[in-house]
């Protein structure tokens, strides 16, 4: 188990180094941030002053060497735009996005699994067909359009929820969260739903496919032959078997929900890290982009590790294979 974790962390460190290098060079190649940062009226002297202050006058290998040296000391550089440490900037915005992604995950799981189960148990019913048709819409309609329609329906026409922004937050263990206040919750629901729709469609399809397959297994027939109630057969025997693929896929999707909630955050003007990334790319704010992507890699590694652990918890056969390894 320990060897397994160490090996995984080693791989992650390698990916981190390669990715940081590539992004660092790519952003350098794209253009000169000074031209974007400085006011259009600035003269040559001012431009040079800025370039020098940001350290952009040095050759690339020197800039890169300095970046690596600082990174090894835990310093990922200061934002060109905000003149704040890039990491602080991201971490300040991270809770908002984490909250958004986790809420979306909860919605996707708690609506998606029951709907998928129903569609899997009664594939020929009207309800089953409707759920599957709905999930195709969830897949195929563009995310931003779904967001706009949510705003149009629930904010503009019905006026139930605000159209954008993050509501009042409250500190929970030193982290500002919004789901504890009514205002915050009402701001959270639409963007979370928007982010959840695609995942929900995915969960529905996975659950349905799994249910239909598992229902034909001998152990389900045997469970029924034991005289177990329908709810026990489905709630324990079926559900525990279909959770394996669902957890795997959701783990991967959670990472992408956190890292790339860009579209949703833009549509709902939600102050998360996705919006920060888009803004930073627009301004060629290299330290923020590099730090963001490095953080994303770390996050993916951690999530995958957690998924593996959950996987071992629900599928006993996984444990055995690890013991042998």
């Amino acid at each position: 188990m320990l060897v397994y974790v160490i090996r995984r962390l080693g791989q992650a460190a390698l990916v981190l180094a390669v990715m940081a290098t590539l992004v660092f060079i790519a952003v350098y190649a794209v253009g000169d941030p000074v031209a974007i940062l400085a006011s259009p009226q600035a003269d040559q002297q001012e431009l040079e002053a800025i370039t020098q202050r940001l350290g952009l006058d040095r050759p690339l290998y020197e800039q890169y060497g300095l970046f690596v040296w600082n990174a090894l000391h835990g310093d990922l550089g200061r934002s060109f735009v905000y003149n704040e440490p890039a990491l602080t900037l991201i971490l300040n915005r991270l809770p908002a996005t984490l909250e958004l992604a986790l809420t979306a995950l909860v919605i996707a799981v708690f609506i998606g699994i029951p709907l998928g189960l129903y569609a899997g148990l009664k594939p020929q019913s009207l309800g089953g067909h409707s759920i599957m048709a709905g999930s195709i819409l969830g897949f195929s309609l563009p995310n931003f359009w779904q967001g706009l329609m949510l705003v149009l329906l629930f904010s503009v026409m019905l006026g139930w929820f605000p159209a954008g922004g993050r509501g009042t937050t409250r500190e929970l263990l030193g982290v500002p969260v919004s789901f504890l206040t009514l205002d915050g919750l009402s701001h959270l629901i639409l963007p979370a739903l928007n982010l959840a729709l695609y995942k929900m469609a995915l969960v529905i399809r996975l659950t349905r496919a799994g249910t239909r397959e598992v229902m034909l297994q001998d152990y389900i027939r045997f469970a029924r032959a034991k005289g177990l109630s329908q709810s026990r057969v489905i709630g324990v025997h079926v559900l525990k078997n279909i959770l394996i693929p669902v957890v795997t896929v959701l783990g991967l999707e959670l990472g992408s929900m956190i890292a790339f909630a860009v579209v949703t955050e833009t549509v709902f003007a939600y102050p998360g890290i996705g919006k920060l990334l888009i803004d930073s790319i627009g301004r060629l704010d290299r330290p923020v982009i590099v730090a963001y992507l490095m953080l994303t890699v770390v996050m993916f590694v951690i999530i995958n590790l957690i998924v593996d652990l959950i996987y071992a918890a629900i599928d006993p056969r996984v444990r055995l294979e690890e013991a042998k390894a």
Partner: peptide, 18 residues
């Protein structure tokens, strides 16, 4: 299960693996 029970052909698949 109480008054009338059944066992099946393939023991590899009659018990729930998880």
């Amino acid at each position: 299960g109480r008054n009338i029970a059944m066992i099946f052909q393939d023991p590899m698949t009659t018990l729930n693996p998880v």
